[in-house]
Amino acid sequence: MREPVRKCQVDVMGEGSVEKNRDVLRIFALSVRKILEGLDLDFGKLQEIRLRVGMPLILLYDNHEYLVDKKIVSREEINETVEYVCNYSVYAYEEELRQGFVTVQGGHRVGFAGKIVCENDRVKSIKNISFINVRLAHEVIGAANVILPYVYDKGFPMHTLIISPPGCGKTTILRDLVRSVSEGNAYAKGMTVGVVDERSEIAACYMGIPQNKIGMRTDVLDCCPKEKGMIMLIRSMSPKVIAVDEIGQSKDIEALKYVAGCGCKLFVTVHGTRLEDIKSKPFLQDTVKDEIWERYIVLDNVGHVGNINSIYDKKGIRLK
């Protein structure tokens, strides 16, 4: 169903946050950028911008999809956008392109699809990029307030696994949880937090400096593989809590077990829709059986993105 984008109301939001999100327009080809600037968008509600060669420009805005009137995206515009996303330096983003996405300044994720070049069963590169999806990161201060009472036990944080489908706010919740634990809150004083930010989405570091609010006692390993980063942080920064986003591979789980064995607490997110999904995941199910996780927090987007669907303890007993 075609819903043309019309002039939108500018919502009241933190000015810094709006400005930061508005900056994302810089990565688009000049012609696309002018159209988007002309829409007077509320960047707090803008979730995704999709470009496909020969197809209309599509926005996901306030959970609704909109086609931008009469704008058909051309090959040149896609190429120009890729050039800007990679800062004119495709070589510097080889690894990210292999994974299919690049995180740009502000923590926004730009996904690519096109023709995949394989070598020895390994993705070597991606060429003829024809599809781009820009997912805007939203920093929501206070998003984790609801779960704070559940992640502490007598003032000490607990191993927490945040379970959420894509696009339901797990990174936003994790980021705010990191900020709150680092700064201190009503349940405990501030403590050292280490973040392994493999995709630069949590802290959104630019030139090594976090662009998001992640707390004054937080150390960040930016663009570092999770399994290596967790162990590096333990050895170098002695954090009380380590936070990582989107675990899933066997090597991540090995590192998690190592960290848990070091007396350091974990805040981790994973893709899933309910606790049962985790129990059936090949590598994660061991951690559930071993009762490593003291809290499971399940998110969905019922009513709003980042809705807390349920919270469980380590035995799987529902607390909320």
Partner: peptide, 11 residues
């Protein structure tokens, strides 16, 4: 800069 650090051109 390119070989060892993978720095983008502008930087």
């Amino acid at each position: 800069e390119i070989k060892y650090i993978g720095t983008p051109l502008g930087e």
